[in-house]
Simulated assay, not measured.
Amino acid sequence: MLVIDSTYPAADFNGRNGEAVRQVIVHYTASAFGPSLKTLTCGGVSSHYLLADPHDPGYRAAGYQELRVFRLVDEAHRAWHAGASHWAGRDNLNSRSIGIEIVNQARDDAGVFTFPAYGAQQIDVLIDLIRDIQGRYPAIGPTDILGHSDIAYWRKSDPGPRLPWRCLFEAGVGAWYEDVAKMAFQRRFDISLPPEVEVERAFQRYGYAPAKNRLGFQQRVRAFQMHFRPCDYSGWLDAQTCAILYALNEKYTGVAG
């Protein structure tokens, strides 16, 4: 059951400048409930929603038992969660998105990432929350349910490879490829990968920002893999990754590649 709590308003947010809501951006907090709440309400950054972890000792110490979603910024306002970002030809996604922060203590130790699993209750509530949001904003399509790393791949890794995007898709939230199409493309790409310029167009067609250099290309591949091939997110382009990208484009844009 979706329980929304408005006890803790964020300090920093502003107007949407006339922009309509078009995306939902999912983040992890990289800290426990207490520090996450402080970060998101005391200035500098904010998010529309904070999804707690019911097993977090600090959450229970605060007197909560059932899993709640905390509304920190009203959806009518612009929260400061996306930062420098890009999707589908548009920059500055703060103005056109709703941010959801999930309490998850992922870590980055000098470039070595640790991604803890999300709890089953968290995923169930996340699905309910996104469905609830989509009911108010019908312009949000399947390819508009995104991770922070999708829209800012050059600097972000959240929500990481442990968010079960396929489970969300099977519950009616977000995008996923068709296995038959992916297998057909992979048979083709096992023989020869498409030219890199064609792959670049395919990434941009799906929504990703252009890659400025070789490092950026690999960072974008890594972000894509964390979303759609989480068993291996090395950042190296291979036949399976290309096949998934082309299958997604065929399904959602009508143009393979």
Score class of each variant (00 low, 15 high):
Ile151Asn: 03
Ala139Arg: 04
Gly141Thr: 11
Glu75Tyr: 08
Ser95Lys: 14
Thr143Ile: 08
Asp91Pro: 00
Tyr137Asp: 02
Ala88Phe: 05
Asp144Pro: 01
Asp109Ile: 15
Val73Ile: 05
Ala106Gln: 06
Ala106Gly: 15
Ile127His: 10
Phe115Ser: 05
Arg78Lys: 13
Pro142Tyr: 08
Gly83Met: 04
Asp109Cys: 07
Leu146Ser: 03
Tyr137Lys: 07
His81Tyr: 08
Asp150Asn: 04
Val103Glu: 02
Ser95Ala: 14
Ala88His: 12
Asp74Glu: 11
Val73Asn: 10
Ile145Asp: 08
Arg131Cys: 14
Gly99Gln: 08
His77Thr: 05
Ala76His: 12
Glu75Lys: 10
His86Lys: 01
Ile123Arg: 04
Asp150Cys: 09
Ala139Met: 00
Ser95Pro: 04
Gly99Ile: 09
His77Gly: 11
Gly119Val: 02
His86Asn: 08
Val125Phe: 09
Arg136Glu: 03
Asp108Ile: 11
Ser85Ile: 02
Ile127Cys: 11
Ala76Glu: 15
Ile98Phe: 07
Ser95Trp: 14
Pro142Cys: 05
Gly99Met: 05
Trp80Pro: 00
Ala152Phe: 01
Ile140Tyr: 08
Phe115His: 13
Gly83Val: 02
Val73Cys: 09
Asp128Lys: 15
Ser95Cys: 10
Arg131Tyr: 06
Ala88Arg: 13
Leu129Thr: 01
Ala79Gly: 05
Ile133Pro: 01
Tyr118Gln: 10
Arg131His: 12
Val112Asn: 12
Gly147His: 04
Thr114Asn: 10
Asp91His: 01
Ser97Lys: 05
His81Leu: 06
Pro116Asp: 00
Ser95Phe: 15
Asp128His: 14
Gly99Tyr: 06
Gly99Ala: 13
Arg96Lys: 14
Leu93Gln: 03
Gln122Tyr: 01
Val125His: 12
Ala82Val: 04
Ala117Thr: 10
Ile123Ser: 13
Pro138Asp: 06
His81Gln: 11
Gly83Glu: 06
Asn92Tyr: 15
Asp109Phe: 13
Asp128Pro: 09
Ala120Thr: 12
Asp74Met: 00
Gly111Ala: 02
Gly83His: 00
Asn94Cys: 02
Ala84His: 07
His148Asn: 07
Leu72Ile: 00
Val103Met: 09
Val125Gln: 02
Asn104Cys: 04
Asp108Thr: 08
Asp144Glu: 10
Ala84Lys: 09
Glu75His: 08
Arg107Lys: 13
Val112His: 13
Ala110His: 09
Thr143Gln: 09
Gly99His: 08
Val112Tyr: 07
Ser85Trp: 04
Glu101Leu: 14
Arg107Gly: 02
Arg131Ser: 15
Val112Ile: 14
Pro138Ser: 09
Ala82Trp: 01
Asp150His: 00
Leu126Ala: 04
Gln122Lys: 10
Ile140Glu: 07
Leu126His: 09
Gly119Arg: 10
Ser97Trp: 10
Val103Leu: 03
Arg131Asn: 14
Tyr118Lys: 14
Asp74His: 01
Asn94Pro: 03
Ile133Lys: 03
Ala79Thr: 00
Gly83Trp: 10
Gln121Met: 12
Leu129Trp: 00
Pro116His: 12
Gly119Thr: 05
Ala120Gly: 07
Ala82Gln: 02
Gly83Asp: 07
Trp80Lys: 06
